[in-house]
Amino acid sequence: MKSWLVIGQYLPGNSFIHRLDPRTKLIIIFSFVCVLFFANHWTGYLLFTTFTIVSIVLSKVSVPFLLKGITPVWFFIVLTFFLHILITKEGEILWELGWFQVYEAGLQRSIEISWRLLILVVFTSLLTLTTAPMEITDALESLLGPLKRWNLPIHELALMMSISLRFIPTLMDETERISKAQASRGVDLKSGTLKDRMYAFIPLLIPLFIGAFKRAEDLATAMEVRGYQGGEGRTKLRALQFSNLDIIAAIGYVIVLILFIYIRQ
């Protein structure tokens, strides 16, 4: 399979982080990302950096691979860095070039902000690297389950997500087939100006959409015949189960939080 066909970046494995319940991972990451923005001193950053490094080690994901995975985000991290240097004009001037001045507070602020961003990105990609997309869907369905009481279609959303995931490889295959078929009829997808290439995509997209609608109809029929009537009264084969590992992870995370509150005071 081509590399661009790999959706998400899930790396199957059996590490501590891999074996955690996806709900635990989602809760920890979500709350960690929030807490991250309360850091106001270098000790706080040190604590969070350590926590991140420990998590990476426990996940057994190789660091170069992790960094490669976040290449698209580097641009934003660098951009944030320079933006803050430009905007903040406090403290002593450290360096000057014409109208461009670097202030002490500016440098400090931009390092803090971009470091925060880096931790955030590394942490979230750790989630997608160690958790299959399907597990994330299940965890979301389970965690958002209480919202069903207010008639929010949580089950339906989760089902939509899982069917989309199921059909991504199918539609990818179809895209390739159609693009070959169109290429054999002289459609050129690879050269020309951006505008030309965008126009060349139309004969690819239309059959793809028509095909997808046909598939959707067939699938709906197949689901109906097998007795699908919505989420009510349905059992599930894939069951999420908290284990001792989740308790350990939760305790570890709570310790980090307590330390952080202590440092802030």
């Binding site: 399907m134 899982s162 069917i163 995931l165 199921r166 199918t170 046909k214 598939r215 067939d218 699938l219 197949a222 689901m223 097998r226 007795g227 699908y228 009537q229 009264g233 349905r234 059992t235 599930k236 084969l237 894939r238």
Partner: peptide, 22 residues
């Protein structure tokens, strides 16, 4: 292709059973 609901063979066969609350 169009009648395969699950992500895996196991899940696809389970789909009908899940609907019946087995």
């Amino acid at each position: 292709e169009n009648q395969f609901v699950g992500m895996t063979v196991k899940e696809d066969i389970a789909f009908g059973l899940e609907n019946r609350g087995v």
